[in-house]
């Protein structure tokens, strides 16, 4: 990549261009220098596309919670960009146990200790967790 080919495609999405990437490019004499870039069209597209997919899925889950098909745990897990395996590690439980907590009827019976642990992991209050989707 030549110095004059370094892209400066700004992307405001979720603060992406607040960080200027360091690229390595060659000058006229072929010697390398590092140069800051605001971003690149191709990369911006990949980032926003991945995020849109996440947000879309989150919306679907939100609707399911509201319809009473899933518990708020499923929603906040996705909101925190976690996978089932990651949340299970934080909770110190098996994946199937977390999956059970996705069921609204199981969620309603969870003890305070378990709920408090979820709240701490998600960084929310107990009422935020319990009232979500009501």
């Amino acid at each position: 990549m030549k110095l004059n080919e370094v892209p400066q495609d700004k992307e405001e999405f979720k603060g992406k261009s607040n960080v200027h990437k360091l690229l390595y490019a060659t000058g006229d004499d072929g010697s390398y220098t590092s140069v800051n870039s605001e971003g690149w069209e191709a990369e911006n597209l990949a980032t926003t596309q991945a995020w849109e997919a996440v947000l879309e899925e989150l919306k679907e889950t939100e609707a399911k919670v509201k319809r009473g098909e899933l518990s708020p745990i499923a929603y906040f897990m996705q909101k925190n960009l976690m996978e089932l395996s990651v949340l299970a590690r934080y909770m110190g439980k098996w994946k199937w146990q977390i999956k059970r907590h996705f069921k609204p009827e199981v969620f309603r019976k969870l003890d305070d200790k378990t709920l408090a642990k979820y709240c701490r992991i998600f960084g929310i209050t107990l009422s935020e967790l319990q009232d979500f989707g009501r």
């Binding site: 999405f13 979720k14 603060g15 992406k16 960080v19 980032t47 995020w51 960009l81 976690m82 996978e83």
Partner: peptide
């Protein structure tokens, strides 16, 4: 301190 765009697990 990182923008949200980069913050994943």
């Amino acid at each position: 301190y990182l923008p949200e765009a980069f913050r994943f697990h």
